[in-house]
Write a protein that binds this DNA or RNA. Sequence first.
DNA 1: GTACCATTTAACCTTACATTAACAAAAAAA
DNA 2: TTTTTTTGTTAATGTAAGGTTAAATGGTAC
Lengths: 236, 236
Amino acid sequence: MEEQQKKILLVEDDPNFGTVLKDYLMMNDYEVVHAKNGMEGFEKFKKDDYDLCILDVMMPYKDGFTLAKEIREKNSDIPIVFLTAKAMKEDVLKGYKVGADDYLNKPFDSEVLLMKIKAIMQRKATETVADSKQFEFKIGGFDLNSKLRFLKYKDNEPVKLSPKENELLRLLALHENDLMPRELALTKIWRDDNYFTSRSMDVYIAKLRKYLKVDDKVEILNIHGEGFRLVVNPEQ
Amino acid sequence: MEEQQKKILLVEDDPNFGTVLKDYLMMNDYEVVHAKNGMEGFEKFKKDDYDLCILDVMMPYKDGFTLAKEIREKNSDIPIVFLTAKAMKEDVLKGYKVGADDYLNKPFDSEVLLMKIKAIMQRKATETVADSKQFEFKIGGFDLNSKLRFLKYKDNEPVKLSPKENELLRLLALHENDLMPRELALTKIWRDDNYFTSRSMDVYIAKLRKYLKVDDKVEILNIHGEGFRLVVNPEQ
DNA sequence: GTACCATTTAACCTTACATTAACAAAAAAA
DNA sequence: TTTTTTTGTTAATGTAAGGTTAAATGGTAC
């Protein structure tokens, strides 16, 4: 079977560069919609379904990060690649926190871009099976069923989880033993990152800790200023 | 697709040599902005994003090293190449302190310069978010995980590190057994080099020494007036 | 309406972090 | 040598982030 053409939303204000990039991607069998600025980009995004967004970071009126945030509010799973002239760490981090799948510093090698796109599509393709459709987790002595929203410890009665509790624990479980950045949870679950959503998340962390207390091998650690880490300690 | 043009900031006070070099680079498909002195160089640097800086060391008013330091305070990652009249040892050391990526002795072969630029660009281009981050280090009996910010000695409980402790130890580890100049840490981590940040760094060195005390093969030595050296002694 | 639930906001407290101060010790300079 | 500079170390300070509980909000079902 012929593979379905993947659809890319390209938001790039530089008309020359944008056109060249669009043509190049189309030559490589992608369907490309080119928006000339953030506003137009968001309109086009809402009107159709895409497999990937490529956003220029520096654009007048609405920069790439802001656009990404809006896109994420609509669809928390779509892969986003940022194009940036800056190699600055802050930017890299900021993008990462919005949930960037990759980063390209302009200027970049077109071959590199293609490979990255391919890799992301690949990853998302397998991730769909593995990650976004993964609803059952073993966390130490716990079983989390995030489709039915319950958490069971061994043979105890299952505990019902609220939607937010559930999503947060699931996100932590997906990152088990690794850093789960604050901003990731805030953008993915709360779809907004501000003081109050952040505090709200802390409240939920406290709730989850209470549930997890029955198994002393399982704990949620904080990495100050970064995020949380769900760790499962091996048997003592 | 045609490769995107790379942007170079060239700071060179000699008008003849500067113009010739600029033309030569432009002939080789680089976009070049030529500043005639350090002051102008810094202004131009702030106004735009560059992929590389080429700085003459000897310039009136503001020399290349001072300029490099200012540039580093704004962007700790941008590659810097120094042009020096001769291979003075002090100069090499000085450049090393501000994190020079390369050195060229005037007069130099223009082919060599091109090759070096290409190599640096190449290195930076393949440095994506993922692989540029080297997070795990073995330091004697220690394991440093600078993503999760902890330091573990053998099977002991991991010790949590603060962001500054973490970055400093990471920088020391990157220079293991070699000099890690004070100035480098100050410009890269503190992004400022003055009496107070310097004292602050000393405080952090003391903290790290305390952590590292459990392994007597590992120590942080001071090189008076120069910086620190993380040494790992072989088994006795 | 009110009873119920999830979620947010508030309040208060604790911990974490970076900086600065202070003084001692070591090294270099005079 | 004496003096000055640099470094070692501990403690004090101020601020920000996180932990936790309770109350307020807001939506939904009854």
